[in-house]
Amino acid sequence: MNTPIRCLIAEDDVDDQEIFSIAIKELDDSYDCTYTLNGIDALDRLTNGMLLPDYIFLDLNMPRMNGIQCLEEIKKIPHLSHIPVVIYSTSSGQSFIDEALLHGAVTFITKPSRISDLVTILKDFFANQISGKFSN
């Protein structure tokens, strides 16, 4: 059995955490997901050596440290900087998308209103990442 894919999700809204988990379970039950309520928690987990995920999902709007700030911090840490980071948000503003990509996010996901849509988006995303890795 393959090592399950590990994801860290920083999301201050528990409903959104639940929606994300429903979607990812629907996509593939084997994904190992860790949830934190904000960027600082996420950074703590990442830096104390307990967690080394394959993907990081950061909500844009979070208290204390928002997604972009958290992304910047992650990219400063050498052993984390290679991990693909996704910024996801309710908003679809081009300025946020540009900012996220500028700071090194692999993509920007706008939260859809249907879980089935989120499933499709995540499926496409992971497929892209894997094929990208192979092609490298």
């Binding site: 409903d15 929606i19 429903i22 309710t90 908003s91 209103s113 089935s116």
Partner: peptide, 20 residues
């Protein structure tokens, strides 16, 4: 509008979930 969208999206998400 941004803050309004969030709860609204959730209403939709859970309504879809409930309906489907």
């Amino acid at each position: 509008s941004h803050d309004l969208k969030e709860p609204l999206r959730k209403i939709q998400t859970f309504s879809y979930l409930l309906r489907d």
